[in-house]
Design a protein around this nucleic acid. Sequence first.
DNA 1: TTAGTGACGATTTATGGAACACGTCATACG
DNA 2: CGTATGACGTGTTCCATAAATCGTCACTAA
Lengths: 202, 202
Amino acid sequence: MQSAGKGQRGPIDHERREQILDAANEHFRHYGYKKTTVADLAKAIGLSTAYIYKFFDSKRAIGEEICRQCHERVMADVKDAMGSGKPASERLRLIFLTLARDGIDLLFNDRKMHDIVLAALEEGWSTAADFDAELLSHVRSVIADGRDAGEFERKTPLEEACRGVVLALQPVRHPVLLEFNHNTLIEDASLLAGLVLRSLSV
Amino acid sequence: MQSAGKGQRGPIDHERREQILDAANEHFRHYGYKKTTVADLAKAIGLSTAYIYKFFDSKRAIGEEICRQCHERVMADVKDAMGSGKPASERLRLIFLTLARDGIDLLFNDRKMHDIVLAALEEGWSTAADFDAELLSHVRSVIADGRDAGEFERKTPLEEACRGVVLALQPVRHPVLLEFNHNTLIEDASLLAGLVLRSLSV
DNA sequence: TTAGTGACGATTTATGGAACACGTCATACG
DNA sequence: CGTATGACGTGTTCCATAAATCGTCACTAA
């Protein structure tokens, strides 16, 4: 396992990592994860293949970082919706629509990245679990808000309601389903949001 | 396109078809769809490869029929739940649990068949659409029953409610998701059923 | 006329050896 | 001592070619 403090000076470390990630971002987007080799990334920044491994344990570690950044961009959109100051029900609906929109966007405008996200799921990279956990926490907070504001019912245990909502999100956010549902995804998201909101209403 | 009345006598036709389907059922289950050849099926019933094509247009047509039978078995379980005479809410909950249970069963006890169902989805065989349509009609009838009995609210347009429920079923019935969720599938089905029932309640 | 088949073209899939990619290490250089 | 690399073992991926499969058709035999 690679760890900090292997002997490199901090600032240089950081710059090199960024360089590698930038190159990876570009190459993965253009040619996909599988088709770009570590040698390609090394050449792009004018260093040797071996040196890449001073900054990342493996090619997969680079892929995971890129994947994480991709998830972060989606999560930023979710956070925007969360911080909009709108009523909880509206914010929850926005989560459905945001995830659907971002999923479609990934599928059509950034296909290679979509493939990476898919591979990450299939190969059990940790990135997906992290995303799930963060999403759950946002859902929990918006439901709690709604309950405090008297918008939502309080009988159902909070955790049960949260897990139900996250499950109901699957059809509009799981990359595998995007391919089957993409033509009706926005409408589906809206329908599911409506269903979920009725299930939460007082 | 193959059609009835190509010249064969009825009873013989039917028997041969059955023989072929029986052989296909056994071979597909043992070796999978891809690995069994039309020649294998022909040998199994003691006839020539060419003769098979008198009864089916293609290997895929045989696969579709087997797939349809598999869907039919699941749908039979759903129908059992529908005809149980229980309140609509209970019947709807049973649909969730039945589909989850049958999905798990297919995944673990009939893996080759699961692969066929998956291939059918990916290659766009008509069997999946038929299943969806039939499932939707059952959902519609149970929701309508619930509304008539005063169990369910009537404000949401019926079709909208139906489509929402069918969407909410996806996480527990889509074969692709089974592989990701199988360890919590029954619990997930229960949670989703609870959420859906709250969304429908008066 | 009807049940049934062998042979065949076109396409798909298996094979196995060569080329390539991943990740490690000993080492070079300032 | 920190930055950086070439060379190499091991596993994976390509790719050309051989083999097998799909589906058709002309044909046989009762």
